[in-house]
Amino acid sequence: MSDAPLVSIKNLHANAGDTPILKGIDLELRPGEVHAIMGPNGSGKSTLSNVLVGKPGYEVTQGEVSFQGEDLVDMDPEIRARAGVFLAFQYPVEIPGVANNYFLRTAVNAVREHRGEDELDAIDFLTLLKEKMKLVEMPEDMMSRAINEGFSGGEKKRNEILQMLLLEPSFCILDETDSGLDIDALRIVANGVNQMRSPDRTMLVITHYQRLLDYIVPDHVHVLSGGRIVKSGDKSLALELEEKGYGWIDGVEEEGVA
């Protein structure tokens, strides 16, 4: 494990549309680490993840983000994805008509091509897919259905984790992957995530609840408020927040961002 950060965020300011949301974020994520980000509704957590994956409509106005030593800000989203940046969406979209397995194979092969690996044919892919589906306990018939169409909230989240398992990114961002999950699904999703923990991978886990962090134990916990990180600590910070809420921390705005 090297000490150079895998992801380095320096003084990041960003707009969503024309509205400034992120107001100077500094974070260093080293390989092998899991960072949790907590914070009130509207504090900018999803904005941060959207900026990191290059979603159109979000603009970096100041500061820099590097990934594996490369500037991320000017990279096209699909290139970031192929290079290993992955976001498990807070609200996964449905794409009617496009079968899950076909989509997943296209995505896996796009990433493999980028890494200089051979394409997986339908049979090899199916073997890999079945193996990963077991990890998130997804029934096989879901794969021939359209992407997320008619999936329950929990199934959509599991599908996100399945995609992460298949694409094997080195920087995993999970945006409230635990919200809307029942106890069993939470355990399944957390297991999937823990499978991915490795010395050369970094995770940024956005959540509101300690219960996820019982399963995915973070190395660092940060509190985001008003577009800034107002407090950082170790896993005990999350427990403290669970108990006391955000009110006691200096700089936390009561009603989200102004």
Binding site: D76, F86, I95, F103, A107, A110, H114, Q163, L167
Partner: peptide, 8 residues
Amino acid sequence: FFCRQRGI
């Protein structure tokens, strides 16, 4: 965007 985020 969802597709692009998956490398497509």
